[in-house]
Design a protein around this nucleic acid. Structure first.
Lengths: 206, 206
DNA sequence: TTCGTCATGTAATGGGTTACATGATTAC
DNA sequence: GTAATCATGTAACCCATTACATGACGAA
């Protein structure tokens, strides 16, 4: 119980990766930094405390590969600790993937949420993509407006920076548009398939 | 004195903006979020403490526009507080702009440093641009390598994300290449002009 | 006179990094 | 046997955010 505000993106990322396969911390970090390499990088200083917390919450369990017959003397030698999701952990992951709040379309969270889209419900995927898009469009609009108001006296470097920034964001919006288009098409196809399964195909075509 | 690790990017941004013209906090934040709107946004919760600190350090002074003739009774009514740089502040700004350390090419710092390039020495500009570029190229290489190793079994969304990430970074690298080219050309032109001022143009053309 | 924006601030919190410390395993 | 990498962890700190609280000022 106890609401637990959650450890932000890291928690989702860790649960998501562990859902695919059990892993130890070091490998987890590597995979994390490949998965999100272009956007962010986590350090051990945040990863291990996060694992500790997840463990305490019973969302993961550790599997220390100590051979049962090992003599006591060697029992304590530190070794790889493989973590895997518990049932609670899976549940938690599912909830995190379904609650598509603002956090899932802000810069920090979007990438992580996107990375696990294949485990996310289609309608939630769409919500996240659209949320992200409108977030970016807000930003574009506000910057464009401010830019128009203060067109006077701006040195060329500032202009260059803003220009590049605008283009980057516009590019991401186009990318999102494409993804949203694909998602919608897929959803419609799904709907048609469903419709066909029912007999009496009344009211075809919208 | 007292080394003062500095308040990160915000300090530079505030000093830089105040160097262009005195301003009060509210306006400062607005300008900040136009200047860097595409990359980040600061809140009052960080801005005002920063101003307070800069004030304490004597890098800025506040100018409360209280008319000299105002009756004492009205003296304390809160009003706009305009800040402006002191001589120490200008010195500090200059130092921040000249010390082109790693912070100036990491994601958080690059935009801010770039925004004030027109007040930055040409050689420092080049160092920052090149530092940024090699930082991004490192990232590209490490992600590409990891991608090649784990090409097997990756779901299409992860792939899509990484693809988009790679393209974005590649695009920024191209942008940097262009900027670096321009900077170099300008520097050479400058050098030629200098050379021409000297008589005896010995050793022309490298 | 009330609503929206301008304007200034503080306290609690947060999510993360850096730097450090240690030990195991592998390749040479 | 030693250097590099794998592997786990902690403590101190940092920069900024959120949420809150206050108040001035102009327009409807």
């Amino acid at each position: 119980m106890a609401a637990r505000k959650g450890a932000g993106v890291l928690e989702l990322a860790v649960l998501g990766l562990l859902h695919e396969s059990p892993m130890h911390g070091y490998e987890l970090r590597k995979r994390l930094n490949v998965l999100l390499g272009m956007f962010r990088a986590f350090s051990y200083g945040s990863l291990y405390p996060c694992l500790k917390q997840l463990l305490a919450d019973g969302l993961i369990v550790e599997d220390r590969p100590e051979e049962p017959g090992t003599p006591l003397a060697l029992q304590s030698r530190r070794s790889k600790i493989v973590y895997k999701l518990t049932a609670d952990g899976k549940e938690r992951l599912q909830r995190l993937l379904t609650e598509a709040g603002p956090a899932s379309w802000e810069d920090e969270g979007f990438g992580v949420h996107f990375a696990f889209f294949s485990h996310t419900r289609a309608d939630v995927r769409l919500r996240i993509l659209e949320g992200r898009r409108s977030r970016l469009e807000e930003r574009l609009e506000s910057v464009r407006a401010a830019l128009a108001r203060t067109r006077e006296r701006v040195d060329s470097y500032t202009l260059e920076l803003q220009h590049h920034g605008l283009e980057s964001v516009e590019r991401e919006v186009r990318w999102l548009n494409e993804l949203i288009g694909r998602e919608r098409a897929e959803q419609e196809q799904q709907a048609r398939r469903y419709e066909n399964k029912q007999d009496k195909p009344r009211d075809r075509g919208r």
